[in-house]
Write a protein that binds this DNA or RNA. Structure first.
Lengths: 345, 345
DNA sequence: GCGCGCATTGCATACGTATGCAAGATTGGC
DNA sequence: GCCAATCTTGCATACGTATGCAATGCGCGC
């Protein structure tokens, strides 16, 4: 079609058959030389690899996929790159997958557009597994459809009506830890700020937190749904709470909300933590910045990734297997936003 | 191998041949029904698509790739997800690519590891094009190797010794705009903070800025290489400058540095912008947050993406073509960090 | 020296779709 | 109503690797 002006002829890559003829072996031998554990004499393999190196032969992964019905590609479905937690997670996840020879095909979901169309590629590309990180958007039927007949893992959310394996931070443990911490530092009138209230992470954090608050005999002074997990939603929620008064500690459903909340409070002359203590969830990089020094419940990203990679490796998330839910312990990180200047920066 | 305990038999996906036999047409017809513009009667196509829908047939993209020698996959090489500019860019880029039917295969480069090994998959997977966003790391020979014989575009960096097409924001325009702005608001002793001094973006911004400073007869009071594009590098650089005194405006090579700088300055009692004005580059989301309200030169991400997508579409970055460099105009965003409270938040 | 077993190799075919070519079907013009 | 031109369709094969099976070669034990 468009080979109109190519100057250098784009030489077609060498095939195994060509290399085989060149060396005087069969094409099978070439294939075996590149297949770990295949039945081939070490010296023949060495010879083939040497020649391959010389002439720049690389096995064609596409042909291999077709032949093996295995792509070594994992589809990663995401929708929210605004929350820094997700880029951090995706970066480490893709590294973890690369370690075991898997590549990551990104499916960036746009709200409002036709989901099935966006995810149809997920099926056509025959990805070996699907990892869904999007906290929102995907409904049960869509989830089932997207993951039908293939390995699937949800990270940082649970499947409600679909039966899928999940790897999540223990939101209940985290929410309780925050509640306990607020109690310990003497706060009694507590507000909770949800991100998207219907997301599974929020539901777990919210209910565990409210329950624990009650167990401690503390007062839930405000319960706000920010409507999205964003800096500005956090700001607005904080201002709402401020307007009502009667709150001395706020637990934001995640760090990006909390960061917005801290800024809004401080701009309005509220001292954090003297007047209002603030805690978040995730431990994104920003939470550790001296300016925010935000107390938060750290999601152990590395562990989440390791567990996910292991589940893919051992096939425990293969289709037909019983789905498993792995709740990973996190860690309460106490910082200045609840402890005051006494704490380490 | 591991079909030991699969309960439901994983039914193999239907093939075009099976569907063809089922309907009583040839496999070619199936293929044509799914190929836009193929020679097939509309009613036959409709019939085939209807049956396909019924039985859940989806063309196997892998086989199609092998047959067409075209994958519709673009390899995206990245290395720095810490700087929020990159997640934002990648998100919009992958959306833009999806619009024209391309999927994004992510290659997350780890510093220090074997680059060729990490990028070898780039070749084996026969991606149609390579988009390199990593500002650092890739040397000329590696670049050439990774992009040999395939369409390639660099975003936000230029190729120095390799001959590759680039799409970049006009760093020179941006740096001059910042210098002009500093001059306009009456600053005269100016500091520049580099991120990684050897990156092409830094070189362009730095030299254009310094030149312009001199043209205005302003003093370059400090020139610091932060060593990396990070919040903490920005903090350290700001503290360095503070220790020397003699500076009333700082241009940080990008926003994440500037944000760190602003925090460090304010923690040390410096008023921004009264004592020291601060400007960055990129216009990441954070720069617009009321707390930072950072004057910056906005990289027009949407335009960068559109231009990139267009170059892929029209084949102007195909191998053998002369590489083109597209410099995209940006926009100076004046905010409180140079204008004071007078400016809009 | 013979036979057996194992390691190595090649042969042939499968994987599922795309497409050049030729044959058949349809249309339009006169 | 006939012929040519165009549109449709099927046939056959290509794409490049993986792998079951058979054949070969080698070493070892008796």
């Amino acid at each position: 079609m468009n080979n109109t002006t190519s100057e250098k002829v784009r030489r077609k890559p060498m095939t195994a058959r060509e290399l085989a003829r060149m060396i005087g072996v069969s094409q099978s031998a070439i294939s075996r030389a590149f297949t770990p554990g295949a039945s081939i004499a070490p010296q023949l393999r060495a010879k083939i690899l040497r020649h391959a190196e010389d002439v720049g032969y690389h096995p064609n992964a596409i042909a291999s996929m077709l032949s093996k019905s295995r792509t070594n590609i994992v589809g990663i479905v995401i929708s929210d790159m605004q929350n820094p937690f997700y880029p951090a997670l995706i970066e480490r996840l893709s590294r973890g997958l690369q370690r075991i020879g898997l590549q990551s095909l990104m499916f960036n979901i746009t709200k409002g557009a036709d989901l099935e169309e966006q995810l149809s590629a997920l099926r056509r590309y025959n990805v070996d597994a699907v990892i869904i990180i999007s906290a929102t958007i995907l409904s049960g039927p869509t989830l089932r459809w997207a993951t039908e007949d293939r390995a699937a893992i949800l990270i940082n959310r649970v499947a409600e009506d679909a039966e899928l394996s999940c790897v999540i931070c223990d939101n209940i443990e985290g929410a309780r830890a925050i509640a306990d911490h607020f109690h310990e530092i003497g706060r009694r009138r507590i507000a909770y700020v949800a991100g998207l209230s219907h997301t599974t992470t929020n539901r777990e954090r919210q209910s565990a937190f409210i329950t624990r608050i009650a167990e401690h005999g503390m007062t839930l002074s405000a319960l706000i749904d920010g409507g999205e997990y964003s800096y500005y939603a956090g700001r607005n929620a904080a201002l709402d709470i401020l307007a009502r008064g009667e709150t001395d500690a706020i637990f934001f459903a995640n760090d990006i909300l909390a960061v917005g909340g801290v800024d809004a409070l401080q701009e309005n002359g509220v001292r954090v933590p003297e007047d209002i203590a603030v805690a978040g969830f995730d431990d994104i990089a920003m939470a550790g910045w001296p300016h925010y020094s935000l107390t938060t419940f750290r999601q152990p990203i590395d562990t989440l990734v390791d567990v996910t990679v292991t589940m893919l490796e051992d096939g425990s998330c293969a289709p037909g297997k019983l789905p498993t839910i792995r709740r990973i312990s996190g860690e309460l990180i106490k910082r200045r936003s609840t402890m005051g200047a006494a704490s380490p920066a």
